[in-house]
Design a protein around this nucleic acid. Sequence first.
DNA 1: CAAAATTAAAAGTAATACTATCAATTACTA
DNA 2: TAGTAATTGATAGTATTACTTTTAATTTTG
Lengths: 224, 224
Amino acid sequence: MKYLLQDLKVRINEKIYIKDPESSTLGKRIIEHSILMIQEVGFESFTFKKLGEKIGSNESSIYRYFENKHKLLLYLTSWYWGWLEYQLVFSTNSIANPKQKLKKAIEIITRTVKEDSSFTHINEVLLNKIVINEYSKSYLTKEVDEENKEGYFSIYKRLVMRLSDMLKEVDNQYQYCSSLSSTVIEGALHQHFLKEHFPSLTDCNKNVTPTTYFMNLVFSSLKK
Amino acid sequence: MKYLLQDLKVRINEKIYIKDPESSTLGKRIIEHSILMIQEVGFESFTFKKLGEKIGSNESSIYRYFENKHKLLLYLTSWYWGWLEYQLVFSTNSIANPKQKLKKAIEIITRTVKEDSSFTHINEVLLNKIVINEYSKSYLTKEVDEENKEGYFSIYKRLVMRLSDMLKEVDNQYQYCSSLSSTVIEGALHQHFLKEHFPSLTDCNKNVTPTTYFMNLVFSSLKK
DNA sequence: CAAAATTAAAAGTAATACTATCAATTACTA
DNA sequence: TAGTAATTGATAGTATTACTTTTAATTTTG
């Protein structure tokens, strides 16, 4: 727990950025407005030039923080997973019963981010939407293996592991903890996306949440 | 069945292309080599100019077939899903027992494409890899809703429906047929990806296939 | 207050994602 | 088989992207 708290303001792999955006006002403005802008125009149309104009700063200044927009996306999504991991650990830590603990974990991982805690420049509600729409693009690249070696995905991987461990705690006979964990985490994003854009491909809607569905899915797989 | 067979050479939504690539030698060369090239360099680095050079043709000629590379990706992935749908319907059609039918369906949807039937210019093995690596990018865009309205994803949607119907056949009490179907189809791609690039996040490997995992997942969820 | 670091502004480069024009080739049809 | 239409190739051009470089102005810090 302690190490996690000091990790908050989420500790991002230092190779992802050139200069830590948390270390200056400009850096924070870059993060704040990149979230707004990516959400608004989509990652494809988002450019450092446009962002520079929006925050009344210069393109070249943004390049001093991030090599390119792909790295910025890695930064934002890492932050998001780190933030979610914090929620997860914080909320489940005190729960002794493995089943209850797992339930809580699934809830946190699959729910829609609703409240903007907004104690920072980071809007978690929008960031959640960005993760739903753009996260895959950060790893579906020709450079995944290198970047994975550099540790760019380590927070995400740690989160998958944590959930996987909780699954094991409930049923140590179950053979597919890692796959089920990754299915839930990635699948939750997917169901949220479908709910918005392909309602015929999901049973999730106003009444049925992804949480309901995944709760059922997971506990059907684990021994009673 | 009959309508499906006449649909083969897969019937692609006509708005996806400007000129039907099946209608000419150049068109077929575009498809054939775009598959090789996207697989080789990744979708991001793939350009019509490079493709033109590779097939000894001109950039502008390729633009007469496809508006842009995004449309080409839609074409390729639609073809893939249509091809898979054909496999699915062909192999399950004669099976009367709903459980057996579903098993076969899951097997077809989650397996690795191994043999290149190669009776055409389309290499299905490589195309399967492209779908694993690039399919998400075709719908994770700001234009999804428009393009969905235009019917660009209808083959994929039909496939999800088919599996969903088969789930319902086995257990008509189960509440999440659509979500489970979309989870299996998207999740299968994801597990194949993880197997290659993030082995620690999956239990799938040489011995355990995604098929094994999803078979277990699905039949745990449905009533015995 | 001086030195160091940061940022802004402007200009430049190479590549991408096209579009337009026109000539050459091929196909089809009368 | 000539004549016309359709297709393709070659070249050039535009706007935008994704940067890099340089220099000057501003801010921070010691």
